[in-house]
Computed example of a mutant assay.
Amino acid sequence: MSLFNKMLASVGIGAATVDTKLEHDTVVPGGEIRGVVEINGGNVEQRIDDIYLSLNTTYVKEVDDKKYTASGLIDRFRLTDSFTLMANERKVIPFSYIIPADTPLSIGKTKVWIATGLDIKNAVDPTDKDFIRVHPNEIMDSVLQAVSGLGFRLREAECEQAPYRLQRRLPFIQEFEFVPTSGPFRGRLDELEVTFYPVSSFETEILMQVDRRARGLGGFLSEALNTDESHIRFTVNTSDIPHMQQKIQSVIQRFS
């Protein structure tokens, strides 16, 4: 019977299971996630080689001019050393985990989740998946509010494969695409794209693309040659928050 149970466990029947329970499911980039991983033994003892948490999202990748959605690993965190889990044994492992500062925000199409996995030799590895909501930190929120206050509406937020020149630690970037619906830039810009590159909890680099609206023959020629777009890099920090809208407006004004 024991051999039969081992055979079943090797294909996932009557094997160990895992369930991650988070204290909270909201966090900001660079913030802390806490919880416990509950592991319940199956019908036979099993050797657990590894327990890990991985932070994941999806992003749009392009290959041979075709776009598809790919899974993106943001970070991976090992919980424990290997151990033997006895039949019907229950283990509860607490954890505390700081998510990376470049974790994308849960806005638009972007979803972020924690996957918990057990590595079990010669067996199907049990997994668990828990979605979390990544909210903007203080600086990001200030920038997004400032852009909104200037009459821009968020049209799309999505993670996309990063061009080589823009790649940092991750193979993708999260772009926030805005369109002017009111305010000083309506009729002057087609769209505004914003990407965050956190430097620390107090400072963030911003890449901004300003897409000017074509006006006259010269404007249409510029649009055809892609010279109607300006790419701007600048840095904001917590001291900019009280006057963030004025700073963002000044930057856009110079290139619109």
Rank of each mutant, 00 (worst) to 15 (best):
Q167W: 01
A214N: 10
I252H: 07
S106H: 02
R153G: 11
E191W: 02
A16V: 01
A123L: 09
L105M: 07
S54N: 11
E45Y: 11
F176I: 02
S2G: 04
Y197M: 11
E193I: 02
L189K: 01
Y164G: 04
L79D: 09
A162H: 01
S2T: 12
T80P: 09
D125P: 03
T110F: 06
I13H: 03
V143A: 14
M140Y: 07
Q167C: 01
V251N: 06
L22S: 13
L105T: 04
L79H: 08
D228W: 01
I93T: 01
K111T: 04
D141E: 15
P180G: 08
V236S: 04
V143H: 06
N237T: 06
T103V: 15
G216F: 04
P163K: 02
G151Q: 09
T20D: 07
R133P: 01
I74L: 03
L3W: 08
R213F: 02
K61M: 09
Q209E: 14
H135E: 15
S71L: 08
G218M: 13
G41V: 15
T127E: 14
C159D: 13
G30C: 04
V251K: 11
E38V: 10
V134A: 00
L170Q: 12
T235K: 10
I13K: 13
L207I: 04
A146L: 02
D64Y: 05
E45Q: 13
G14P: 00
I132Q: 03
Y68W: 09
R155C: 03
F95E: 15
S200I: 08
K21A: 09
T110M: 03
D119V: 08
